[in-house]
Design a binder for these strands. Sequence first.
DNA 1: CGTTTAATTGAAAAGTATCAAAGGATGTGG
DNA 2: CCACATCCTTTGATACTTTTCAATTAAACG
Lengths: 243, 243
Amino acid sequence: MENFIPEALFSMLERRDELSVAERKALESLSWRQRSYGDGDEIIPERSEPTESCLLVEGLAARSRQLANGNRQLTAVHVPGDFVDLHGLLLKVMDHAVMALAPCRMAFAPHSEVRRIAAEFPHLGRLLFMTVAIDAAIQRNWIACMGRMDPLRHIAYLVCEVYCRLDVVGQVKDRAFDFPVTQSEVADLVGLSIVHTNRTIQELRASGHVTWQGNQVIVHDWDGLARLADFDPTYLNLVRRPR
Amino acid sequence: MENFIPEALFSMLERRDELSVAERKALESLSWRQRSYGDGDEIIPERSEPTESCLLVEGLAARSRQLANGNRQLTAVHVPGDFVDLHGLLLKVMDHAVMALAPCRMAFAPHSEVRRIAAEFPHLGRLLFMTVAIDAAIQRNWIACMGRMDPLRHIAYLVCEVYCRLDVVGQVKDRAFDFPVTQSEVADLVGLSIVHTNRTIQELRASGHVTWQGNQVIVHDWDGLARLADFDPTYLNLVRRPR
DNA sequence: CGTTTAATTGAAAAGTATCAAAGGATGTGG
DNA sequence: CCACATCCTTTGATACTTTTCAATTAAACG
């Protein structure tokens, strides 16, 4: 893939710290390989041992864990700009799968090269690993949502988070964004049954803070929604500062 | 603190990869500062901006998130050897607190020095950031437990995980370990009410796989317990290989 | 030995899952 | 353009799980 420029990754990182020209060039210099996936496709299988890190360029993806009882839990959502598989670089064996929630374009770069630029540019390396730490922070919040929030607030929180993360990469227009997931997928995100998820989404609509029809979500009243969900974006680290 | 040797950290890392002499020396050379905490003490406050990373040397700690509705959710347990606050190095502002679940001894090292050795020894840096990725993997599993497992399996899973992690640092003897947490804390770990947690622990005892009296947990039938919890330790990355 | 904290129990209320079915939207082939 | 199939959303009713409230018992501590 000649001359692939990971723009969304730049947005994601530069929202948190400054990237030097050399660092940008280093990221561009990786031998990126691009590939597209259809809705529901498996991007990285559970138990596989990837040799490339992958970056979500376009679309929406999720981490998925299949349980013995047949249930599925989605443990993370990924938006364009997310370096989805740095985890695999550090951990070797996938303990979960990565799947496309919608048609996706992914860009892959060899672990060896990522390791090399991380060693050569320690600050860039820290920024890359920071994205892993941000993923961890997001997951901690999900744990809190699942354990101690009622379904209405939990789903409201999900909307707030996705809104903020999509906004970073310019995918929110006029307080609206595209969220191409079925209610069954939302159920697997929040850990509820489909029926209860449906009723909760209706309740959220009735609260008046959002319109959520088909794949489009419009946030009419951000402050009210954030208050409802007790949403504090600190954990997303949307502050530009030396790291 | 002259000549502090982070033995538990060595065990933790060497269980995953080989440490060179230079890397060990680099870790020993940090200007460690040690401090003790009592049961329930706050080690790192929410919203603080730590300038030191902290390592749990002895005791048991947890990450804690306080919600607006007054509820508390514990999002991680930490055992000796865990570099609890690398997150703070990468993320700057704490989005949660770290607290002592039992009397703890912590060792602190300045972020600047940790950054320096990570840059100077890229492989060691990767291993340190690997611990963040392992924390993330653990949290993903917690999400799956909370969302899609019934309480009995969830608590069984917690026992399996703590067992494995304490075993890495030599804290399991004769299939038994010390687990100095109240049922109210277990409730905040798994996201259930105290009453239901109590009943579930009784159910777990009745299954015959474990004895859990006071602070001592004895696992009589590891295979049975792991089968009950659908526990697969892959995500703990307990395999020694180049990373 | 009294005081406090933690563990345990019972019963009622609230929340959630499951089952079964009915609408709605979309896409295909005739 | 219609008939049909498919997938998703929505609804109602019932069974089950979990929380909450209110006590009681047990253990730890000065």
